[in-house]
Design a protein around this nucleic acid. Structure first.
Lengths: 209, 209, 209, 209
DNA sequence: CATGAATGAGCATTCATTCAT
DNA sequence: GATGAATGAATGCTCATTCAT
């Protein structure tokens, strides 16, 4: 019986080093963006955080923007499946909201774990205050989800665009605050946001007939 | 009887020119910040927008940060009276929320009038969310107020930090959407946000004892 | 009676300094191009030759190409009047050829005087081995001139394009060699080239009927 | 009797691959030099034109200069027999000049055949005249030959340096023009140049005693 | 005070060269 | 001997800041 060989193991040393360097740059970028902010960051800051030489950066990315994009894509790629699961398992509006906020706040907390350990003064950029096309996609997915769910429970006539905006804005801003607190408490934030949003929606529903 | 003398009249020619230059720089900075975002703006961009020489900038401000500060202070100076009135006239949480959201959305609509006309993207060049000095300051003012009001109406035991975060996040995100709609409708946004927030807070109050 | 005031004198100190800096950069560029060749020259080499700072270069020129262009334009602008005079004063083919070669070799010697003093190992680029649009214009002027002159003396049926090419090629290549010799002797080169060319043309004329 | 063994056949597989790589690099360099000029070419440009890796370049050449040299030597190797024949068969100055110019213009036309087909600009990208290794070497060979021949026919007292310069300059400049004409006509150019040069030299000889 | 040219530190980017695989 | 990623010195260029006029 032949052992299953993992892709990483199949790669030569060179390929593995390449992969590792790419990851090192991405990770360094994530840390530096969190520490001093995206705009203030320059490429030297990023490579200084690795043990690579300056020219090496350009073997992997053309610009700061491209690292950012990669980081954002990565975040979204990891977040989307969670959202998918939420969507499938939601029974009603309440369970959807709880699950969605929980997914978001938990993801955010995990995503920023390193930054938090390192005492990053700048709040997380990736995934929070950033509108990449991908992030917008996630927003739109949530909006679509909400529309479906709300339709199903007979609330389709409400202003879903504003409701989504309210929920997303709430999540973003609360996310920043959540990350400032110790201990970081995604559960509490979820409880708060879900309850708050649910009440808001119900109130709007009541006054709309 | 001493005649009331307007500040401008009291000033000499020199002082008036000085004041005008200061204003020109501030206005230029406001325009450029709105156009390309605070971080992306450099001092040359600002003075290029005026008919002044680069050195002149330093007679008035030490840095981009200082202009930002001044612009923010200016916003506060213009916004504070409105907020003062809101605070004074608010009888309860409901009336405060309505008035505060109304002040915010109206301010936002007016503040972005030029930008909308000029087709300025206002924020999010590519990806990074930019807060103009105005918005940042206004948000902070409201946060402070909200805390006071909630305390006064006996809701001080709630998680006021999260509540203000929720309200501000909601306002910010909804603000973007409001500015996209035609006609721009601060009244509608106010109605929506106030009702939503009030219901949220009441729900939290209910479940907290 | 008011003294005639020279433009230079009318300029303020600032304007004069500006003019001087521009000239300093051009002169430095000419020297460095001659010393190490156009392609090998970088902008730091040029400014190092002046007592200016690196950034100052960009107050005057956008690139190495632009300095080159300015230098070339300058050369042409100073050469064209000489050619004009040659054209007007030429009585026949012989006198035209002598005058034109003389103008060229003399101009070349003067142009490269500094470079020669400095022991420049690289032969002159400006005006010799370079085809700027302007240099081409000069070539075309010479070609047109030759055509007119040759027509006048009844040699219009010859291959004037090749004759011009031959004369210009000869001048270019001989120019390089002339600059290597000590003393630099434009008279000798002129004598040689004119005689040579004249004989060549006459031979062609003879065998063309 | 030993069979004549071709070099290629004598080599092992390894050596043949080696030879092929060397040739690939040389050919790539020739193409790129012709396309963008020697100075503007960098090593990456050359290896990109092959299917070899960058490091491989250094197994064959130490620098761009060395490739140039090799290319030039190659040209010489191909051109020298022609020139050898010219030298041997020349009975007098006239026949030498005809044969030499013919060799040069023919070689030039053939050498530029690909470039003409491929629409390569060959030289003068913008402004700076570029000599391919081939041309430079050929010129030098002819110069050396001419000196010998002139000496042999008793014209050694003339200014041979200037004469060769004149002949070479003429050939170069006329070569450009020849390549522009259709059809490309080395014969015509040869006739013109030889006649012209011969007359020039004779005139100089006459006036030198 | 206004001016705007000079400054030079700082950043992005390229590229010849090396070397582990 | 081939590979191609890593290296880091070198270069082009920007921009906040100063200062003589």
């Amino acid at each position: 019986m032949t052992a299953t060989i993992e892709p990483e193991v199949r790669m030569g040393k060179r390929a593995r080093a390449k992969e590792a360097n790419r990851k090192a740059i991405l990770e360094a970028a994530r840390v530096v963006f969190a520490r001093i902010g995206y705009e203030a960051t320059n490429i030297r800051d990023i490579i200084r955080e690795t043990d690579l030489a300056s020219g090496t950066f350009y073997n992997y990315f053309k610009s700061k923007e491209e690292v950012f994009e990669a980081l954002a894509n990565d975040s979204v790629a990891r977040f989307r499946p969670l959202l998918q699961k939420v969507r499938e398992e939601a029974k009603d509006l309440e369970s959807y909201l709880y699950a969605a906020f929980s997914a978001y706040f938990t993801f955010l907390a995990e995503e920023n774990d390193d930054a938090i350990q390192g005492g990053a003064p700048h709040m997380s950029l990736i995934g929070v205050r950033v509108d990449t096309p991908e992030m917008q996609t996630v927003s739109e997915e949530i909006a679509a989800d909400l529309e479906i769910v709300m339709d199903k429970v007979g609330l389709g006539k409400l202003d879903i665009d504003y409701i989504t905006a309210a929920a997303i804005g709430m999540a973003r801003e609360m996310g920043d605050h959540m990350l400032q607190r110790r201990p970081v408490d995604p559960k509490g934030a979820t409880e708060f946001a879900a309850k708050f949003t649910l009440a808001g929606i119900e109130e709007l529903a009541k006054s709309s007939h």
